[in-house]
């Protein structure tokens, strides 16, 4: 029971409280780049969930069975980037061959995720937070869900920004960044939510 509670706690805190985009400011590039339209934002979000999950599955054992064994924890960043990039490429080929319809929908986003810092951030944080393997997997799913949530919410905000009459000097990216900061502030309202979930 304790473990299930703990897993739910991790899930909720990674989706809402420690949202990767809006609280930790990782993965800002796709957040601003692909959030113009809702379907694309959702597609990107789903792809990120998928890749974060796979990346955690691959990097967690690597850290504990290879890097820790040789005392090479400091190589974490470079090795993880290598593995994630190769993994994404591999997944892309796999999808292209066996699930062409999914590849058509996710295909354009997969290469974008290759060097997404949110994915790298999740895998490294899973190690530094000292999670067990199930915890790490749940945390990666939660972070992916949080990314999807941020993308979908922000694409709604973006669509309204497009129609508003911003001052000339604010048009385009500046007003988008201001809006992103306000959405991020709104997410601070979740602080303390996860801790008090089972209180």
């Amino acid at each position: 029971m304790e473990t299930v509670k703990n897993l739910i706690f991790i899930l909720m805190s990674s989706v809402l409280v420690n949202n990767y985009v809006l609280s930790r400011f990782l993965g800002i590039c796709p957040f601003l780049g692909v959030s113009k339209k809702l379907p694309q934002a959702a597609g990107m979000g789903v792809s990120v969930i998928f890749v974060m999950f796979l990346a955690t599955l691959a990097t967690y054992p690597l850290q504990h069975f290879v890097l820790a064994r040789f005392g090479l924890e400091y190589l974490q960043t470079i090795v993880f980037i290598l593995v994630i990039a190769a993994l994404v490429q591999f997944v892309e080929m796999l999808l292209k061959k066996y699930i062409p319809s999914l590849h058509k929908n996710l295909g354009v986003y997969l290469p974008l995720i290759t060097t997404n810092c949110a994915v790298l951030g999740v895998t490294i944080n899973n190690i530094t937070d000292g999670y067990t393997f199930p915890e790490a997997v749940v945390s990666s799913l939660g972070c992916g869900l949080g990314f999807l949530l941020a993308m979908v919410l922000f694409s709604g905000v973006r669509e309204r920004i497009e129609n508003c009459d911003a001052p000339e000097c604010f048009k385009g990216l500046p007003v988008t960044l201001v809006a992103a900061s306000i959405v991020s502030l709104a997410f601070f309202g979740f602080t303390g939510l996860a801790e008090n979930l089972f209180a």
Binding site: V66, F70, L75
Partner: peptide, 8 residues
């Protein structure tokens, strides 16, 4: 270090 990185 080189060996592990190269191996991976």
């Amino acid at each position: 270090a080189v060996g592990v990185t190269a191996g991976v």
